[in-house]
Amino acid sequence: MNRLTVSPSPHVHSGDSVKKNMYGVIIALVPALAASLYYFGLGAAIVTITAVLSCVFFEWAIQKFLLKTEATIMDGSAALTGLLLAFNMPSNLPIWIIIIGSLVAIGIGKMSFGGLGNNPFNPALVGRIFLLISFPVQMTLWPKPIASQAHYLDAETGATPLSIMKEGLANGESVSSLMNHVDMPSIRELFFGLSGGSAGEVAAAALLIGLIFMLIRKIITWHIPVAVIGSIAVFTGILNLVSPEQFAGPLFHLLTGGVMLGAIFMATDYVSSPMANKGMIIYGIGIGVITVVIRVFGAYPEGVSFAILIMNGFVPLIDKYVKPKRFGEVAKPAKA
């Protein structure tokens, strides 16, 4: 007979694993990846492959040579960081910049804090923001969709809807005239991703499919995406009602830039988001509000990445003060 195993209860496990969750998110990103390959073709492929491979390599190298710990690259978290980093970059970014971004994302954003589970900030965003500040020109040259299918560095570039809006409004033009601007895609085109922008952020439809997949597989809960999207919609809606010619409407804001990618995939990063449902909603609203403030009143046309990083910083505080609702905390009055 075998020796009996003795362990404390419970004696069964759900079979869930870190790997399953990480690969689940990667699967959820497949529609968006397909969309980015369709719109940006060669460039998107090169950026994605470079970012994923270099992130995985850096994690492996740091664990092997610096930390001398067991390599955990197979859990999929490094590949996921790479994929998200690629989605947050223009598809005509030179390879060397992508590699620097990956090194910052993995080396500074993740491993310097102790690896998976300990990073206070979303590593992909750390990489992205680092690049945005270090290489502002390269990071804001956006290839035109479809037209750049067969191009990489030589892709024809154009403005993003957000920058058209930002510059137009600064020049005193009205929202309605800007919405009819030659280069401005229609709301429908925005929904399906026919607009300039980072490789993976343009196709809202594809990202929403990913959200539905993750909700069904219970990889994430609805709280963060709904809070981010809802608060942006409400906030921009109010501004739009107050002065329709000065502030663009909620649909425009939701479908442009990184809102969908941010709300669905970046803000919901397990490690850098709060634990309690209530906290998640506060965190989501914070991201939404900061995003709109940066977009409408700030210097940058886009603010999702900054908003998420700022709120990442608040997570420990939120976790300390916002606790899940405890059983019996508010004893209900007798009804029976």
């Binding site: 020796r3 009996l4 195993t5 003795v6 362990s7």
Partner: peptide, 22 residues
């Protein structure tokens, strides 16, 4: 000789509250 196998958290206190030992 070991007659059972302990498979819980690596803590003597937890193991000893579970049973006499392996």
């Amino acid at each position: 000789p070991r007659i059972t196998e302990y498979d819980g958290a690596t803590s003597c206190t937890i193991a000893s509250s579970l049973y006499g030992g392996d």
